[in-house]
Amino acid sequence: MAASLKIRRDDEVVVISGKDRGKTGRVLRVEPKKERVYVEGLNIVKRHQKPSAMNPNAQAGVIEREGPIHVSNVALVDPKDKKPTRVGIKREGGKRFRVARRSDTQID
């Protein structure tokens, strides 16, 4: 059983390792079981595609789309100073919410 990730869809993240190091983007998709995230405009991969019987109007040829990035290679962007931060969990009144460890601000 995979633990839930502290990075969620629509979060702003910065890549801290790999070919796209230093670039930022918005998380499009999260796969907790594989511990992967898909970030808008980063880790672009090329795939060959042809129209199929199920999708005859599909764009044929070489298409580019976002590839997966391991969750350990991205860090959440601190909403206060726009720098990479770790994520903590705080509880108040039975609710749990994410906080940026760098500035201790709550993350929406």
Rank of each mutant, 00 (worst) to 15 (best):
N57P: 12
G88Y: 09
K34L: 06
N73K: 12
V74N: 09
P79K: 08
N43Q: 13
E66N: 10
Q106D: 02
R29T: 03
E35R: 10
K19N: 02
I16E: 06
K6D: 03
I107W: 11
S4K: 15
D104I: 02
G67C: 12
D104M: 01
M54E: 11
V74S: 08
A53T: 09
D10Y: 14
V74Y: 11
V77A: 15
V99A: 10
H48V: 14
P32W: 13
D11K: 07
G25E: 01
K33V: 15
K23L: 13
K23G: 00
A75R: 08
E66Q: 15
V37H: 06
R9C: 07
G22T: 12
L28G: 03
P32T: 13
V62Y: 11
E35V: 05
S72E: 12
K34N: 08
Y38T: 05
V15W: 07
S72A: 15
N73L: 06
K19R: 10
S52F: 15
V30L: 10
V74Q: 08
Y38I: 08
V14H: 02
T85M: 10
R21T: 14
K83S: 13
G94R: 04
L5Y: 13
R9E: 14
T105C: 00
T105L: 02
E64C: 04
G94M: 01
P79E: 06
K82Y: 07
R8Y: 05
T105P: 02
K6W: 07
T105N: 02
V14N: 05
V30Y: 13
I63L: 08
D78W: 00
L42P: 01
E35W: 11
K80C: 04
I107Q: 11
P84L: 15
E31F: 15
K83C: 12
V74M: 13
R91Y: 09
G25T: 06
I107D: 10
A53E: 10
K95S: 01
K34E: 07
A75T: 04
I107K: 08
S72N: 12
M54V: 06
D78F: 02
V74D: 02
L42H: 06
V71Y: 08
V99G: 04
G67R: 12
I44M: 15
P68C: 00
V30F: 15
V77T: 15
K80N: 06
N73F: 13
R86V: 01
I16Y: 09
L28H: 08
I16R: 10
A53I: 12
E12D: 08
N43A: 07
V74C: 07
I89Q: 02
D20A: 10
K6A: 01
E35I: 10
Y38N: 05
V62E: 06
